[in-house]
Amino acid sequence: MKSIFYKEWIKIKWTFLAFLVLGIVGHTIMFLKVRHDILFVDAVNYWYSFLFRGYPYFSILKFLPLVAGLGIAIAQYFPETLNKRIKLTFHLPVGENEILLKMHAFGASSLTAMFVFFFVIFVSGSYIYFPAEIIKPSLLTITPWFLGGLATYFITALILLEPIWLYRGLYTITGAGFISFFYMYGTIGAYKPVIISLAVLTLLISTGVLFSGYRFRKGEM
């Protein structure tokens, strides 16, 4: 168990740290800009543009989770597909599904941990400048972006482990359609009624990797 986690950590270590730094830099830039704009236009007007003009101060974060999910999935699963290395793992005296699920769980939890960390920075930074009435709708707006990051991770893993190129293409088209659900254009807080359904779908899609993992280890079908 420990050894699997260690092996996975070695693979994603640098990518993980790179996105962590990128996220911290992103949040820093965002809050520096908020500070700058509030200084220039006054907090009253800055709040006004959020409340009545729908100007989100956090749009810089929109695709950060998506890229992070994509990056971590590639770092973790791409090396396994080179020379079909993952087959070695499948020869270990442990259930094949079990080992794949553990790898997957490790990747997903690292990503979740990173996202939770970003959430904490986001909320604590926002509390300096804004009241709860602004922070709450902001969180409702960024939550689907972060869920989309996790969904991107699960779907990229599914695509990478698929052995046949044609199906990789088909999964990419379907997957891209699914990911687009998380990044629709909408006003602040518009995602509120759908967040739970999207979270359930994301959780369900996490098992998808078992399917392409199975096809991978059975080789060409």
Binding site: T174, L204, I205, T207, G208, F211, Y214
Partner: peptide, 12 residues
Amino acid sequence: MIKLSRYILVLV
């Protein structure tokens, strides 16, 4: 389990 994961993919 694998079959179930396929049905989930089909649903999505």
